[in-house]
């Protein structure tokens, strides 16, 4: 369970997140939606310990989040991974980073660990790319490689930042179907998204965020009015019947 209490976050004195109270229970598949600049990425980076907490508390399984993160694997898929396409690594090498935490300093990975890497690539459907150089992978293929890295450590949590941003539309549906499968296997998934149509089809819970929390509801209870309130004038909802 992830619990966020009285969270505020400022950049140069400007509030980015205000008074966030949020509880995500185990095995939920949660989408955080909101307009650009709503603080969605900031919120997940705070949960992941990638940004320092300024005000408030985050608990993971009732342990302060940084303490929990220093002792447990956590799955994370960044919005855009910075890397040099000529970097001399194949896809499996990148997946193996997900097991670095459980490997002692100066030790290389064991063959059992490499098997786990291969298995994770099977699960995310990118096994054919395992020994290809990363420079030759498409956006969608790299996305699945990074997802394999996020799950290989066996984390019960999987946090994704706009996974649809580097995949084309049919690819997005397949990717969310895969996430749903991972969720059904018992993982708690939190994804930031812009794609209301897709998240409403796959996620159980939707968190509407625009600096403040507007709602945290079951997906089917999130209606047009709430979304309008979250996105403000940035969105005009057109009823397409879904």
């Amino acid at each position: 369970m992830i619990r966020i209490e009285d969270l505020n976050y400022y950049i140069a004195g400007n509030p980015i997140l205000e008074d966030i109270q949020l509880e995500i229970t185990d095995q939920e598949f949660v989408a955080i939606i909101g307009p650009n600049g709503a603080g969605k990425s900031t919120l997940i980076k705070l949960i992941l310990g990638l940004l320092p907490l300024q005000d408030g508390k985050i608990w993971i399984d009732d342990i302060p989040h940084l303490e929990w993160l220093s002792a447990h694997p956590m799955g994370y898929l960044p919005q855009r991974e910075e890397y040099d396409r000529r970097f001399p690594a194949n896809a499996l090498d990148i997946v193996m980073l997900g097991l670095a935490a459980e490997t002692k300093l100066g030790r290389s990975f064991t063959s059992q660990q490499r098997e786990r890497g291969i298995e994770a690539m099977h699960t995310t459907g990118c096994i054919d790319q395992a020994f290809k150089p990363i420079g030759g992978l498409s956006g969608g293929e790299m996305q699945r490689v990074l997802l394999a890295r996020a799950i290989v450590g066996g984390s019960k949590y999987l946090i994704l930042d706009e996974p649809e941003s580097s995949v084309d539309q049919p690819g997005v549906q397949d990717f969310f179907a895969l996430l749903k499968e991972l969720n059904m296997q018992g993982r708690t998934i939190i994804t930031v998204s812009h794609d209301l149509h897709t998240v409403s089809a796959y996620c159980n819970f939707i968190v509407c965020l625009n600096r403040r929390l507007h709602c945290h509801n079951q997906a089917e209870m999130v209606n047009a009015e709430l979304i309008q309130k979250t996105f403000g004038k940035a969105v005009r909802l057109i009823d397409k019947g879904y």
Partner: peptide, 15 residues
């Protein structure tokens, strides 16, 4: 190797 690949992600995965 991982430090050279991506410093931030290497740190996240506790290198």
């Amino acid at each position: 190797f991982y430090l050279s690949y991506n410093f931030e992600m290497a740190g996240f995965y506790r290198v």
